[in-house]
Amino acid sequence: MSVKQISVFVENQAGLLSEVTTLLADNGINLRALSIADTSDFGILRIIVEDVEKAAQILHDHGNTYTVTEVLAVKMDDKTGGLAKILKVLADAEIFLEYAYAFLLQKPGEACLIIRVPDNDAAEAALAAAGIGITTQEELF
């Protein structure tokens, strides 16, 4: 079960990133997780929110370029080696990892790793075989 991530195109100019996050905050959109990828020229803000549709509508109404992508939220132990374990499973299964970012869950000791891979089903199966679980969108909130 994948989760929906919203990616927003951001020009690499001071202030433009906070413009987007402020816009969402002002409209009551709570960011569960956030990551920024940037080059010298532009940035991509990736966010996980509870109400994907509402957030997308707000971005659309304000003229933002965005896209919604299915990513995997992998359960991760919040201790040394938690991340390494997941990456090794993916590497062994020869699954190309486009990008990943982690965040802590409400429950102490639990964390989550968002991964973007070409084939979610294949990655989920490989992780399950290694005893690693996946979180659903609802479980994140």
Partner: peptide, 18 residues
């Protein structure tokens, strides 16, 4: 202008487009 139809979530693809 970066059009929504061409935009993707990966830096690799957007950079290649550029």
């Amino acid at each position: 202008e970066m059009p929504p139809e061409k935009f993707t979530d990966t830096v690799r693809e957007v950079t290649a487009m550029e």
